[in-house]
Design a protein around this nucleic acid. Structure first.
Lengths: 334, 334
DNA sequence: AGCGCACAATATATCGATAAAAAGTAGGAC
DNA sequence: GTCCTACTTTTTATCGATATATTGTGCGCT
């Protein structure tokens, strides 16, 4: 490992001069600078980031902590990365597997030190656990749960998105719409808020929002959704529309519907939430509420950047707007 | 920031005693140990990982460098993570956006220091660039390109996978199969190897492997594939099967076929490569060559682990076997 | 010639931990 | 009572950089 001291010796200067050349902190005479740069090239020197970090207290690195590297989070992360890099910092992803303990660990002082800032997709932590998080480190939370006031937070307009999707299907003729993967939990959660939107849309149209039409999905995978959907079909419960809590769930539903000979959108309309890349291409095209990755990423990185620049004002809670993207899985779409 | 020195003062011992208690290196008397632990609790002390790293030269962290956080890589990363964690280490993802310069930067000494080992998905780098990578740091390359002998490498059996898929479609009646997203580049690349497999299968069955049936796709997105597919259809080139170089490409093709009124698998059979999660659920189910994430992850982590344990033998080049998963997009599937 | 000033380069202290060597403390054997 | 050994604990040096203070150098001005 070649150190700054080796470069200094080779160039016949002090370590600080090398540091000053590389960081352009204090001015260095041109001939000296050239000698240093030549030595750097010759030896192939590269700064030891760990040492710099220890001394300077800065890593120029931001962590995005996600429950899994899959799907929604992968897509969101791809949006976040360029924004972080545009500010001269570096982005790394960490995974918690939606495990509360691991999420807390990710927020532990020890790990936070490694980064100048942290974006955390809250999946497993509840309000009480998050309330215990006290740190000076810039943090922005992402995700569809309630969070303490003192932490910055970006979430989606879940309720309004679900309402849009449901209302759209009602307008196009559906009268009995399943809320697949939704729930009645008390806490503000993604599945609860989206159910509320479904309910709202039903009521608004003068339709019953029968709790029997709220169908839970075991683990929010396509497989779980497919199985739940098959059970509903087998049960004989009449329905002519499905609002799926996510596109992943919608895909499972689509699979079950196809296998059961139910035609989309003729017999059953289908809408999802997130507008994953694939949803555009899966025939007949899945109508979906766009999760506004761009807006979410921009808002989150903006809040984070502000904190990293020293801002200490009160935390903000941003609700990113969403819009409905109509495709072939609902009538009147492309 | 509470340091080890603060804990030491509170417990009335030296810094080294605290270190010894926390790391269980040298034995410490029980009463002393208890006092130290009490102080740690009381002050909420957590070790400074940066300082430890600088001194101990170990981060207990492995980086997985991928071209993008999406799809294939996200799924693979989710497989890799538990294997790394099982060895008491931590995994982080970094992104290069398939940019050769950024990939080289990810391999720069400076960034390598931050990790005990690196898994690198080679997308943009060619043989010559990789040849310049000289480092003592444990590295394992992943991906479907040629790499220098001195670097450990895990790749898929691309040629045989493509052959399996193509042969399967031929067996089920296809006679004119497109190789969508494949190419004739000289270097061993994913698109070339898979084309070779397609060619091989055609020849084996006594069919012509007409270069006109090798259709490039601009950027290997579903959108690009869809457009390429629509052009082929518009051109009037007769075909009754599509081997898509990836499932993402297959999805684009499926979209184009559906919009053109061509039925899968009745008019056209379709097979992809990667067996993404979604492929199982997209009606009618996309027949795909399973990318064997588990095997790839296991082999790669195994090679990395071996290096991190001090093994210095010659590099290995593993070709992970693949298998065909037959679904509804080819005849005779589910 | 003498003085001061601007600028370049160096010396010193420090970030927070760990490895290795040294020192302190008992207890047991003779 | 002395000495040795075994076990705890502390001391010292170090990882590789950066921030601050200090020293050194050349030049203009009177």
């Amino acid at each position: 490992m070649v150190r700054m001291a080796d470069v200094a010796r080779a160039a016949g200067v002090s370590v600080m001069t090398v540091s000053n050349v590389l960081n352009e902190r204090l001015p260095v005479n041109e001939p000296t600078r050239a000698r240093v740069m030549a030595a750097v090239e010759a030896l192939g020197y590269e700064v030891n980031l760990t040492a710099r970090h220890l001394r300077a207290g800065r890593t120029d690195t931001v962590a995005f902590v996600v429950p899994s590297f899959h799907d929604y989070f992968g897509e969101l992360a791809d949006q976040v990365a360029p924004l972080i890099e545009a500010e001269g910092r570096h982005l790394v992803l960490e995974r918690t597997s939606a495990d509360a303990e691991q999420e807390m660990e990710a927020l532990s002082v020890a790990r936070l030190q490694m980064y100048d800032g942290v974006l955390l997709s809250v999946a497993g932590l509840d309000l009480e656990q998050l309330g215990r998080v006290r740190t000076a480190k810039p943090i922005v939370l992402l995700g569809e749960r309630d969070v303490p006031d003192h932490l910055n937070h970006v979430r989606l307009a879940n309720e309004s998105g679900a309402r849009l999707a449901t209302a759209h299907m009602i307008e196009r003729g559906s009268r009995r719409i399943l809320a697949l993967g939704c729930s009645f939990d008390a806490a503000h959660m993604m599945t609860t808020d989206r159910r509320a939107g479904w309910e709202h849309a039903c009521r608004e149209a003068g339709l019953a929002a029968d709790p029997a039409y709220v169908v839970p999905v075991s683990d929010y995978t396509s497989l779980g959704a497919r199985e739940a959907m098959l059970e509903v079909i087998a049960s004989g419960l009449p329905f002519d529309g499905v609002f799926a809590v996510t596109d992943i769930v919608a895909l499972g539903a689509l699979s079950a519907l196809a296998d059961s000979g139910l035609r989309v959108p003729v017999d059953v309309q289908l809408a999802g939430f997130d507008n994953l890349d694939m949803s555009r291409f899966i025939p007949p095209g899945i109508t979906s509420v766009d999760a506004n990755h761009e807006g979410v990423a921009e808002a989150a990185v903006g809040l984070l950047h502000r904190q990293m620049s020293g801002w200490t004002g009160p935390a903000e809670h941003v609700v990113a707007p969403v819009r409905l993207v109509v495709r072939g899985s609902t009538r009147g779409g492309a």
